[in-house]
Design a protein around this nucleic acid. Structure first.
Lengths: 140, 140
DNA sequence: CTAACTGCAAAGGTTTTGCTTCTGG
DNA sequence: CCAGAAGCAAAACCTTTGCAGTTAG
């Protein structure tokens, strides 16, 4: 049972996608990134964008923001950091750092951004999955 | 400019939907709820389920969980509480309470659930929207 | 009565997939 | 070479919407 991860090929599409994402400090959707990358690779397809973002995320080279509800957004910054979404315009921006103690007084202002609350989700392993086996983390 | 909210009618569809959701301590998707409610209202449509979940959420009678990435999940418990998603099976369960101080040691175990991390998103108003006007919170 | 609502079906938007061709290593 | 990847188009999702008929209040 060869379980080895398949060998990644460094295609121009993948390289340029990563390059462009990392040059932004915004958090584009797949389509937005598609439009950007198309300037350099006019024949790239949206499917390729999705497949590569998936792969890059799997390999930990980019972040994937699914906190927003609908479309996923991608993030070239992989260091742990924190996001703030404006309920007015919908844009997501980075916050300088996570300070857990700030949670208690959530009505703060950071860099001009007026914080009105937060959404939080823990992740981990539920009791059932812990019993079943360790590879239930990989499967599914 | 009459801005009054329209008067809600207490239709059986709406009532039963709320009833069934509140009887669960899981967090079903619209389709899952559709399947459940269909047992009592065989002719209900998925569109009606979506429309009513929207209305109920708007009126603060149910919670809406958009933290998961793709499909929205709904929650009959409106009191503020905290969610944990299993990276194995994907299910979401409630955690008894939010204790901000727990953030510092994120590798905790609560009720048998092994917590490996959390995702956090602030929301509020960005500097641009604060300048533009207050109703940019309502618009868009 | 009548505005709010339903059921149905079609449309919209995002993401995935099948397939053939291409290409990095 | 050839497994991995691209391009293309179709399909698969979830969710919203238009419309004509129905109904709660």
């Amino acid at each position: 049972m060869p379980t080895g991860k398949s060998i990644r090929r460094n295609t121009p599409q993948r390289k340029i996608l990563l390059e462009e994402l990392c040059s932004l400090n915004t958090h584009p959707t797949a389509s937005e990134l598609y439009e950007i990358v198309r300037k350099r690779l006019p024949r790239i397809s949206l499917g390729t964008v999705y497949r590569n973002l998936e792969v890059l995320h799997e390999d930990g080279q980019i972040g994937k923001l699914e906190l927003n509800g609908h479309e996923a957004r991608f993030d070239g910054m992989v260091q742990p950091h924190c996001h703030a979404r404006c309920t007015g315009c919908g844009k997501v921006r980075d916050l300088p750092e996570i300070d857990p103690r700030k949670f208690e007084s959530a009505s703060a202002e950071i860099n001009g951004f007026l914080i009105q609350g937060f959404k939080l989700e823990y992740f981990g392993t539920c009791p059932e999955c812990r019993l079943h086996s360790a590879d239930c983390l990989k499967e599914n």
